[in-house]
């Protein structure tokens, strides 16, 4: 059989998936871009004659909206505090589990992963009660240390940290598995050689483990940060963006504007600002990674 019919077969295998991705992913992305330059709102939703192109008005309006700046700051707070904390906890637990001194390793690995597969909504609901100021388990536990009671989700100063702690609890197991795989790929003889040279445990960690884990770490940081920028369900369930908008994220704002107030043009512009931020972050990461490889 020659190559031509085979290429035809390839396209037949590809076309259903490509059609789905083209129509329900690529097209909406392009449409969202176009939408962000229109004043599409609840009237246009009823009748498509009622919208017009408004140029960059939505983008100008975004930057003139104080709530957007609040949402941007909150999202960066969540990403810049939660991201590194999550990666650090994942690396820490992976190192502990990788140690030969650790017992019941498989058991712990499974336990640490359970929150990852649990529904975020259910988890957020559980934590909402754990955080309850009067009868929450957390304040009860802290009362033994003489701390509190703290109104975790009702105080603007601690609401975001509370959401970060929950988010880290929920997803550290995922990155932990990736780190564990990275650790297992480091050849044992590197450590043996270092041991013969009289390197201490800390020195071995600094000069073997960390450098060898660099590609894994870059990957983990990338997926964690991209995921964290999309913060939505936690504030939706736990705080409705409050108190005083202190947990309103960019996606939460987009949802409110687009699907509650039906300002879809404006919401599309918010979505594209988020996309631009994520894209910029990804590009910086890739550049850093490339310079590391050289």
């Amino acid at each position: 059989m020659n190559a031509a019919p085979r290429a035809a077969a390839a396209w037949i295998f590809l076309s259903p998936a490509l059609a789905v991705i083209g129509i329900f992913f690529v097209l909406p992305v392009l449409a969202a871009f176009a939408l962000s330059f229109t004043d599409f709102d609840i009237y246009a939703l009823g009748n498509w004659d009622y919208f017009r192109f408004v140029g960059f008005q939505n983008y100008v309006r975004i930057f003139e909206t104080p709530l957007f700046w609040t949402a941007l700051r909150n999202t960066f707070y969540f990403v810049l505090a939660g991201g590194p904390l999550s990666v650090a906890v994942s690396l820490g637990t992976a190192l502990m589990l990788h140690s030969k001194l650790a017992r019941f390793r498989t058991f712990y690995r499974t336990v640490f992963f359970l929150p990852v597969v649990s529904s975020l909504i259910a988890v957020a609901i559980i934590w909402r009660y754990l955080y309850h100021p009067a009868h929450g388990l957390l304040n009860y536990a802290l009362s033994f240390a003489g701390i509190g009671p703290v109104d975790w989700l009702g105080d603007t100063a601690v609401a975001m940290p509370a959401i970060i702690v929950m988010a880290v609890w929920k997803n550290f197991g995922y990155n932990m598995l990736i780190f564990l795989a990275g650790l297992q790929n480091i050849p044992d003889d590197l450590y043996e050689a270092a041991h013969l040279d009289g390197a201490s445990g800390w020195q071995q960690f600094r000069s073997i483990t960390l450098p060898m884990l660099k590609p894994t770490t870059v990957f983990v940081v990338m997926i964690t940060v991209i995921g964290y920028f999309q913060l939505f369900a936690e504030p939706y369930v736990m705080t409705q963006g409050g108190p005083l908008n202190s947990t309103t994220s960019i996606v939460y704002l987009m949802y409110e504007q687009g699907f509650r107030w039906w300002s879809m043009g404006f919401a599309a512009a918010i979505a594209f600002v988020l996309f631009a931020i994520i894209l910029a972050f990804t590009l910086v990461q890739m550049l850093l990674q490339r310079s590391v490889k050289r």
Binding site: F24, P28, A32, L35, I226, G258, A268, A271
Partner: peptide, 15 residues
């Protein structure tokens, strides 16, 4: 894969 799913949701809903 770098495009966040939320970007598609508004037009997807209209579609």
């Amino acid at each position: 894969m770098v495009v966040p799913a939320q970007v598609t949701m508004l037009p997807l809903f209209l579609m």
